[in-house]
Computed example of a mutant assay.
Amino acid sequence: MRRAVREWLGRYAPDGVVAVALSGGADSVALTAAACAEADVVDALTVDHGLQTGSAEVAAAAAALASKLGCRSARVLTVTVERAGTGPDIADHDQDIGDRAGKARYPGGPEAAARRARYAALDQARQGLPVLLGHTLDDQAETVLLGLGRGSGARSIQGMPEFDAPWGRPLLGVRRSVARELCADLGITPWEDPHNSAPEFTRVRLRHEVLPLLEDVLGGGVAAALARTAAQLREDGEVLDALAGELLAAARDGDGLRIEMLATAAPAVRRRAIREWLLERGAKSLTDSNLRAVEALVTRWRGQGGVAVGGSASGTRLVAAREHGRLILGSE
Protein backbone atom coordinates (compact mmCIF):
# COMPACT_ATOMS: atom_id res chain seq x y z
CA MET A 1 0.00 0.00 0.00
CA ARG A 2 2.77 2.44 0.89
CA ARG A 3 4.68 1.62 -2.28
CA ALA A 4 1.60 2.23 -4.41
CA VAL A 5 1.05 5.64 -2.80
CA ARG A 6 4.75 6.50 -2.97
CA GLU A 7 4.91 5.75 -6.70
CA TRP A 8 1.75 7.75 -7.36
CA LEU A 9 3.10 10.75 -5.45
CA GLY A 10 6.33 10.59 -7.44
CA ARG A 11 4.40 10.75 -10.71
CA TYR A 12 1.66 13.23 -9.92
CA ALA A 13 2.29 15.09 -6.63
CA PRO A 14 6.06 15.38 -6.05
CA ASP A 15 5.53 18.15 -3.48
CA GLY A 16 3.90 15.53 -1.25
CA VAL A 17 0.85 17.60 -0.32
CA VAL A 18 -2.53 15.92 -0.95
CA ALA A 19 -6.07 15.59 0.29
CA VAL A 20 -7.69 12.19 0.77
CA ALA A 21 -11.37 11.26 0.61
CA LEU A 22 -11.99 9.26 3.80
CA SER A 23 -15.34 7.51 4.18
CA GLY A 24 -14.30 5.27 7.07
CA GLY A 25 -14.45 2.14 4.91
CA ALA A 26 -11.49 -0.22 4.61
CA ASP A 27 -10.19 1.07 1.29
CA SER A 28 -10.18 4.74 2.26
CA VAL A 29 -8.82 4.04 5.76
CA ALA A 30 -5.93 2.00 4.36
CA LEU A 31 -5.27 4.69 1.74
CA THR A 32 -5.23 7.40 4.40
CA ALA A 33 -2.83 5.44 6.58
CA ALA A 34 -0.48 4.82 3.65
CA ALA A 35 -0.71 8.46 2.54
CA CYS A 36 0.14 9.71 6.03
CA ALA A 37 3.21 7.45 5.98
CA GLU A 38 4.39 8.58 2.53
CA ALA A 39 3.16 12.13 1.89
CA ASP A 40 4.46 15.24 3.61
CA VAL A 41 1.01 16.68 4.28
CA VAL A 42 -2.40 14.97 4.15
CA ASP A 43 -5.75 16.70 4.64
CA ALA A 44 -8.69 14.33 5.18
CA LEU A 45 -12.13 15.12 3.75
CA THR A 46 -15.13 13.10 4.87
CA VAL A 47 -18.53 13.52 3.20
CA ASP A 48 -21.73 13.00 5.17
CA HIS A 49 -24.51 12.38 2.63
CA GLY A 50 -27.19 12.23 5.31
CA LEU A 51 -28.87 9.28 3.60
CA GLN A 52 -28.49 6.73 6.41
CA THR A 53 -29.34 6.78 10.07
CA GLY A 54 -26.23 7.58 12.06
CA SER A 55 -24.31 8.99 9.09
CA ALA A 56 -23.16 12.00 11.11
CA GLU A 57 -21.62 9.73 13.75
CA VAL A 58 -19.87 7.64 11.06
CA ALA A 59 -18.43 10.80 9.50
CA ALA A 60 -17.28 12.16 12.86
CA ALA A 61 -15.58 8.85 13.69
CA ALA A 62 -13.79 8.90 10.33
CA ALA A 63 -12.54 12.45 10.96
CA ALA A 64 -11.31 11.49 14.43
CA LEU A 65 -9.48 8.48 12.95
CA ALA A 66 -7.84 10.74 10.36
CA SER A 67 -6.33 12.85 13.13
CA LYS A 68 -4.99 9.74 14.87
CA LEU A 69 -3.42 8.51 11.63
CA GLY A 70 -1.50 11.76 11.25
CA CYS A 71 -3.54 13.97 8.92
CA ARG A 72 -2.85 17.69 9.15
CA SER A 73 -6.57 18.40 9.16
CA ALA A 74 -9.83 16.47 9.07
CA ARG A 75 -13.05 18.03 7.85
CA VAL A 76 -16.59 16.69 7.63
CA LEU A 77 -18.50 17.95 4.60
CA THR A 78 -22.28 17.73 4.99
CA VAL A 79 -24.13 17.61 1.66
CA THR A 80 -27.68 17.49 0.38
CA VAL A 81 -28.28 14.80 -2.23
CA GLU A 82 -30.41 16.04 -5.12
CA ARG A 83 -33.81 14.51 -5.63
CA ALA A 84 -35.16 13.71 -9.11
CA GLY A 85 -35.85 16.80 -11.15
CA THR A 86 -33.46 19.06 -9.22
CA GLY A 87 -30.36 18.67 -11.37
CA PRO A 88 -28.77 17.04 -14.41
CA ASP A 89 -27.86 13.36 -14.51
CA ILE A 90 -24.07 13.22 -14.82
CA ALA A 91 -22.41 9.79 -15.01
CA ASP A 92 -18.98 9.06 -13.55
CA HIS A 93 -16.23 6.44 -13.98
CA ASP A 94 -17.53 4.31 -11.10
CA GLN A 95 -21.24 4.56 -11.87
CA ASP A 96 -23.59 2.17 -10.08
CA ILE A 97 -27.11 1.44 -11.22
CA GLY A 98 -29.83 1.53 -8.58
CA ASP A 99 -33.26 -0.03 -8.51
CA ARG A 100 -36.25 1.47 -10.29
CA ALA A 101 -37.58 3.10 -7.14
CA GLY A 102 -34.21 4.74 -6.52
CA LYS A 103 -34.10 6.05 -10.09
CA ALA A 104 -37.53 7.54 -9.63
CA ARG A 105 -36.42 9.42 -6.50
CA TYR A 106 -32.96 10.45 -7.68
CA PRO A 107 -31.56 11.32 -11.14
CA GLY A 108 -29.67 8.20 -12.28
CA GLY A 109 -30.38 6.38 -9.02
CA PRO A 110 -29.43 7.16 -5.40
CA GLU A 111 -25.79 6.13 -5.80
CA ALA A 112 -25.29 8.43 -8.79
CA ALA A 113 -27.02 11.32 -7.01
CA ALA A 114 -24.88 10.81 -3.89
CA ARG A 115 -21.77 10.65 -6.07
CA ARG A 116 -22.54 13.99 -7.70
CA ALA A 117 -22.97 15.61 -4.31
CA ARG A 118 -19.80 13.97 -2.95
CA TYR A 119 -17.55 14.98 -5.82
CA ALA A 120 -18.89 18.54 -5.81
CA ALA A 121 -18.22 18.87 -2.07
CA LEU A 122 -14.73 17.39 -2.34
CA ASP A 123 -13.87 19.66 -5.25
CA GLN A 124 -15.01 22.74 -3.34
CA ALA A 125 -13.14 21.80 -0.15
CA ARG A 126 -9.83 20.53 -1.56
CA GLN A 127 -8.22 24.01 -1.68
CA GLY A 128 -6.30 23.30 -4.86
CA LEU A 129 -4.91 19.93 -3.75
CA PRO A 130 -5.26 16.63 -5.60
CA VAL A 131 -7.75 14.34 -3.87
CA LEU A 132 -6.81 10.69 -3.40
CA LEU A 133 -9.64 8.17 -3.79
CA GLY A 134 -9.62 4.60 -2.51
CA HIS A 135 -10.52 2.78 -5.73
CA THR A 136 -8.72 -0.56 -5.92
CA LEU A 137 -7.91 -3.11 -8.62
CA ASP A 138 -11.21 -4.82 -7.79
CA ASP A 139 -13.12 -1.59 -8.41
CA GLN A 140 -11.31 -1.24 -11.72
CA ALA A 141 -12.30 -4.77 -12.76
CA GLU A 142 -15.94 -4.07 -11.88
CA THR A 143 -15.85 -0.85 -13.91
CA VAL A 144 -14.50 -2.70 -16.96
CA LEU A 145 -17.24 -5.32 -16.69
CA LEU A 146 -19.91 -2.62 -16.44
CA GLY A 147 -18.47 -1.00 -19.58
CA LEU A 148 -18.44 -4.31 -21.43
CA GLY A 149 -22.06 -4.88 -20.49
CA ARG A 150 -23.09 -1.49 -21.82
CA GLY A 151 -21.27 -2.10 -25.10
CA SER A 152 -20.50 1.59 -25.63
CA GLY A 153 -17.03 1.20 -27.10
CA ALA A 154 -13.42 1.06 -26.03
CA ARG A 155 -13.65 4.28 -24.02
CA SER A 156 -16.15 2.70 -21.63
CA ILE A 157 -13.81 -0.20 -20.80
CA GLN A 158 -10.68 1.87 -20.28
CA GLY A 159 -11.61 1.96 -16.62
CA MET A 160 -10.58 4.69 -14.22
CA PRO A 161 -7.33 6.61 -14.72
CA GLU A 162 -4.62 6.91 -12.07
CA PHE A 163 -5.00 10.66 -12.24
CA ASP A 164 -7.85 12.64 -13.72
CA ALA A 165 -7.20 16.02 -12.16
CA PRO A 166 -7.97 16.59 -9.37
CA TRP A 167 -8.85 12.95 -8.64
CA GLY A 168 -6.03 10.53 -7.88
CA ARG A 169 -6.29 6.75 -7.58
CA PRO A 170 -3.03 5.27 -6.24
CA LEU A 171 -4.53 1.85 -5.45
CA LEU A 172 -5.66 0.68 -8.89
CA GLY A 173 -2.96 -2.00 -8.80
CA VAL A 174 -3.80 -3.14 -5.25
CA ARG A 175 -6.43 -5.74 -4.33
CA ARG A 176 -9.25 -4.81 -1.98
CA SER A 177 -8.18 -7.63 0.34
CA VAL A 178 -4.82 -5.92 0.92
CA ALA A 179 -6.59 -2.82 2.22
CA ARG A 180 -8.48 -4.96 4.72
CA GLU A 181 -5.24 -6.65 5.78
CA LEU A 182 -3.66 -3.28 6.45
CA CYS A 183 -6.62 -2.19 8.58
CA ALA A 184 -6.31 -5.43 10.57
CA ASP A 185 -2.57 -4.89 11.04
CA LEU A 186 -3.26 -1.40 12.38
CA GLY A 187 -5.96 -2.70 14.72
CA ILE A 188 -8.65 -0.63 12.98
CA THR A 189 -12.18 -1.91 12.41
CA PRO A 190 -13.42 -0.10 9.29
CA TRP A 191 -16.98 1.01 8.74
CA GLU A 192 -19.05 -1.36 6.62
CA ASP A 193 -21.35 0.54 4.26
CA PRO A 194 -24.62 -1.41 3.99
CA HIS A 195 -24.93 -0.27 0.37
CA ASN A 196 -21.89 -2.41 -0.45
CA SER A 197 -23.92 -5.56 0.20
CA ALA A 198 -27.27 -4.41 -1.22
CA PRO A 199 -28.13 -6.68 -4.18
CA GLU A 200 -30.32 -4.05 -5.88
CA PHE A 201 -27.13 -2.37 -7.09
CA THR A 202 -25.57 -3.81 -10.23
CA ARG A 203 -22.02 -3.23 -9.02
CA VAL A 204 -22.72 -5.18 -5.82
CA ARG A 205 -23.96 -8.18 -7.81
CA LEU A 206 -20.89 -7.98 -10.04
CA ARG A 207 -18.71 -7.98 -6.94
CA HIS A 208 -20.39 -10.83 -5.10
CA GLU A 209 -21.80 -12.99 -7.90
CA VAL A 210 -20.32 -12.33 -11.36
CA LEU A 211 -16.62 -11.85 -10.61
CA PRO A 212 -16.38 -14.83 -8.23
CA LEU A 213 -18.08 -17.00 -10.88
CA LEU A 214 -15.66 -15.80 -13.57
CA GLU A 215 -12.71 -16.44 -11.27
CA ASP A 216 -13.98 -19.98 -10.68
CA VAL A 217 -14.76 -20.77 -14.33
CA LEU A 218 -11.58 -19.23 -15.76
CA GLY A 219 -9.23 -20.46 -13.09
CA GLY A 220 -8.46 -17.19 -11.30
CA GLY A 221 -6.71 -13.97 -12.22
CA VAL A 222 -9.77 -12.42 -13.85
CA ALA A 223 -9.80 -9.17 -11.87
CA ALA A 224 -6.13 -8.53 -12.59
CA ALA A 225 -6.63 -9.39 -16.28
CA LEU A 226 -9.53 -6.95 -16.56
CA ALA A 227 -7.44 -4.22 -14.92
CA ARG A 228 -4.58 -4.91 -17.36
CA THR A 229 -7.00 -4.70 -20.26
CA ALA A 230 -8.18 -1.30 -19.02
CA ALA A 231 -4.59 -0.04 -18.78
CA GLN A 232 -3.75 -1.25 -22.29
CA LEU A 233 -6.88 0.31 -23.77
CA ARG A 234 -6.17 3.57 -21.97
CA GLU A 235 -2.69 3.71 -23.54
CA ASP A 236 -4.16 3.02 -26.98
CA GLY A 237 -6.90 5.55 -26.36
CA GLU A 238 -4.41 8.29 -25.51
CA VAL A 239 -2.73 7.82 -28.90
CA LEU A 240 -6.07 7.84 -30.75
CA ASP A 241 -7.19 10.93 -28.82
CA ALA A 242 -3.99 12.75 -29.82
CA LEU A 243 -4.58 11.86 -33.48
CA ALA A 244 -8.21 12.95 -33.16
CA GLY A 245 -7.06 16.29 -31.76
CA GLU A 246 -4.88 16.83 -34.83
CA LEU A 247 -7.78 15.91 -37.12
CA LEU A 248 -10.14 18.23 -35.28
CA ALA A 249 -7.73 21.14 -35.61
CA ALA A 250 -7.28 20.49 -39.34
CA ALA A 251 -11.02 20.06 -40.02
CA ARG A 252 -12.24 23.21 -38.29
CA ASP A 253 -14.01 25.70 -40.51
CA GLY A 254 -15.44 28.45 -38.35
CA ASP A 255 -17.97 26.87 -35.99
CA GLY A 256 -18.24 23.77 -38.17
CA LEU A 257 -16.06 20.96 -39.48
CA ARG A 258 -15.11 20.29 -43.11
CA ILE A 259 -16.80 17.10 -44.30
CA GLU A 260 -14.07 16.26 -46.80
CA MET A 261 -11.38 16.29 -44.11
CA LEU A 262 -13.42 14.07 -41.77
CA ALA A 263 -14.43 11.62 -44.50
CA THR A 264 -10.86 10.65 -45.33
CA ALA A 265 -9.86 9.91 -41.70
CA ALA A 266 -9.78 6.49 -40.05
CA PRO A 267 -13.16 5.73 -38.39
CA ALA A 268 -11.78 5.47 -34.83
CA VAL A 269 -10.01 8.82 -35.17
CA ARG A 270 -12.96 10.47 -36.93
CA ARG A 271 -15.47 9.46 -34.25
CA ARG A 272 -13.21 10.74 -31.50
CA ALA A 273 -12.79 14.06 -33.28
CA ILE A 274 -16.55 14.40 -33.77
CA ARG A 275 -17.18 13.46 -30.14
CA GLU A 276 -14.73 16.08 -28.86
CA TRP A 277 -16.27 18.74 -31.11
CA LEU A 278 -19.79 17.92 -29.93
CA LEU A 279 -18.79 17.98 -26.27
CA GLU A 280 -16.98 21.30 -26.52
CA ARG A 281 -20.05 22.78 -28.20
CA GLY A 282 -22.29 21.72 -25.29
CA ALA A 283 -23.64 18.28 -26.22
CA LYS A 284 -24.54 16.13 -23.20
CA SER A 285 -24.86 12.41 -22.51
CA LEU A 286 -23.59 11.27 -25.90
CA THR A 287 -24.29 7.62 -26.69
CA ASP A 288 -22.60 5.42 -29.26
CA SER A 289 -25.74 5.51 -31.41
CA ASN A 290 -25.76 9.34 -31.26
CA LEU A 291 -22.16 9.48 -32.36
CA ARG A 292 -22.55 7.00 -35.20
CA ALA A 293 -25.64 8.81 -36.46
CA VAL A 294 -23.64 12.06 -36.62
CA GLU A 295 -20.79 10.20 -38.34
CA ALA A 296 -23.30 8.96 -40.94
CA LEU A 297 -23.84 12.60 -41.94
CA VAL A 298 -20.21 12.48 -43.06
CA THR A 299 -19.76 8.97 -44.44
CA ARG A 300 -23.27 7.81 -45.48
CA TRP A 301 -24.99 10.97 -46.60
CA ARG A 302 -28.41 10.20 -48.14
CA GLY A 303 -30.10 13.52 -47.52
CA GLN A 304 -31.08 12.57 -43.97
CA GLY A 305 -32.01 15.24 -41.46
CA GLY A 306 -30.18 16.43 -38.40
CA VAL A 307 -29.24 14.33 -35.38
CA ALA A 308 -30.25 15.39 -31.85
CA VAL A 309 -27.25 15.25 -29.50
CA GLY A 310 -28.74 16.45 -26.22
CA GLY A 311 -29.72 19.77 -24.74
CA SER A 312 -27.76 22.97 -24.31
CA ALA A 313 -27.29 24.98 -21.12
CA SER A 314 -30.16 27.25 -22.21
CA GLY A 315 -32.54 24.29 -22.40
CA THR A 316 -32.78 24.14 -26.20
CA ARG A 317 -32.13 20.96 -28.17
CA LEU A 318 -28.79 20.66 -29.98
CA VAL A 319 -28.90 19.15 -33.48
CA ALA A 320 -25.95 18.19 -35.68
CA ALA A 321 -26.52 18.57 -39.40
CA ARG A 322 -24.74 18.70 -42.75
CA GLU A 323 -24.73 22.00 -44.63
CA HIS A 324 -22.65 23.15 -47.63
CA GLY A 325 -19.90 20.59 -47.08
CA ARG A 326 -19.65 21.29 -43.37
CA LEU A 327 -20.81 19.54 -40.23
CA ILE A 328 -22.60 22.11 -38.12
CA LEU A 329 -24.32 22.19 -34.75
CA GLY A 330 -27.46 24.23 -34.24
CA SER A 331 -30.26 24.49 -31.70
CA GLU A 332 -34.00 24.26 -31.93
Rank of each mutant, 00 (worst) to 15 (best):
A4C: 02
E7A: 13
E7N: 12
L9F: 10
P14I: 09
D15M: 01
D15K: 05
V18L: 00
A21Q: 02
S23E: 01
T32H: 00
E38Q: 06
A39M: 06
D43F: 07
V47G: 07
H49K: 09
T53Y: 03
A60P: 06
A63F: 02
A63G: 04
L69S: 08
C71D: 06
A74Y: 08
L77R: 03
L77N: 05
V79C: 04
A84D: 03
G87V: 10
D89L: 14
A91Y: 12
D99H: 11
R100V: 11
A101P: 01
G102E: 14
P107T: 07
G109W: 11
A112F: 00
R118E: 12
R126H: 04
R126P: 06
Q127F: 01
G128E: 07
L129Y: 01
L129G: 05
P130Q: 06
L132A: 05
E142H: 13
L146S: 12
L146Y: 09
G147W: 13
L148P: 00
L148M: 10
R150K: 14
S152P: 00
S152R: 15
I157E: 06
E162A: 14
F163Y: 15
A165E: 12
G168C: 09
R169L: 01
R169Y: 15
L172T: 07
V174Q: 02
R175W: 04
S177K: 10
S177T: 12
R180S: 15
C183Q: 11
D185T: 13
G187L: 10
I188R: 14
I188K: 05
R203H: 06
L211D: 02
P212S: 02
D216A: 15
V217K: 11
A223L: 04
A225N: 05
A227C: 08
A231V: 12
R234V: 02
E238C: 01
D241S: 14
A242Q: 14
L243D: 14
G245W: 07
A249R: 14
D253N: 13
A265V: 12
A268L: 10
A268T: 13
R271M: 07
R272E: 13
A273W: 04
W277G: 02
L279T: 14
E280L: 12
R281S: 13
L286T: 10
V294N: 07
V298M: 11
R302Y: 04
V309Q: 01
G310L: 08
T316I: 00
L318Q: 05
V319T: 15
A320T: 12
E323Q: 14
G325L: 10
R326E: 09
L329N: 07
L329I: 09
E332I: 06
